[in-house]
Write a protein that binds this DNA or RNA. Structure first.
Length: 195
DNA sequence: CGCAGGATCCGCT
DNA sequence: GCGGATCCTGCGA
């Protein structure tokens, strides 16, 4: 199964517009072992420098956050504990903004995903969390800085989604007022949403 | 150079 | 529900 990367212009929209627009799109990763992909069903927006939960809060510019200060459409990967998390850089050049991919509905490459996830037996457990989906697709920190409009890691057109739900983000309990920002978006009723 | 703190996951209670 | 695993990163001394 082959997929076509989306046009670069797709990434040129405000972060709070791009985050819900990514729902229903396909996230695809090709490796020497094969291709795996899934429909995006849950995203979160992180908008520095005002957002306490964002890594770019206060315009913190380091080797890790550097890619977020560049043009949109590039991958911002980083390691959390023992897991790799995947973001799409968004917003204007000079603004540290990104969209975290929190959950997918598996589309292709099931054998590869089960193999990479080891003990997992249920399809539901393959990609229903930000650390799980990167492991299933084989996304690693070395993908940092890749363009998401070209092979081997890219966004492709997917399918229409029904209604989109909005709410506060997850796992950012130390972020004071930012805890309540309604910057999490998900496909209503989709079982793969991490919750 | 040391250490504290995570945008998480999994297994056990 | 809770805590441990485990690994950088970022910052202060």
């Amino acid at each position: 199964m082959t997929f076509q990367p989306i046009d670069y212009a797709f990434f040129q929209q405000p972060t709070l517009s791009l985050a819900p627009a990514l729902l229903g799109k396909l996230l695809v990763k090709e490796t020497e072992f094969g291709t795996a992909s899934g429909w995006i069903v849950e995203t979160e927006a992180y908008i520095g420098p005002e957002d306490r939960a964002a890594h770019g809060y206060g315009n913190r510019r380091t080797k890790r956050t550097e890619v977020m200060f560049g043009p949109p459409g590039y991958a911002y990967t980083y390691v959390m504990h023992t897991h790799c998390l995947m973001n799409v850089v968004s917003g204007e050049i000079g603004h540290p903004e990104a969209v975290l991919i929190r959950a997918l509905e598996p589309c292709s490459g099931f054998d590869l995903m089960y193999q990479r996830r080891g003990k997992v037996k249920k399809e539901l457990e393959l990609t229903n969390g930000p650390g799980k989906l990167t492991k299933s697709l084989g996304i690693v920190k070395e993908d940092y800085g890749r363009g998401m409009f070209e092979y081997p890691l890219f966004i492709a057109d997917g399918k229409e989604v029904g209604s989109i739900a909005v709410g506060p983000r997850i796992g950012i309990n130390n972020s004071r007022e930012a805890v309540h920002y309604p910057w999490r978006f998900w496909v209503e009723g989709n079982p793969f949403v991490s919750k």
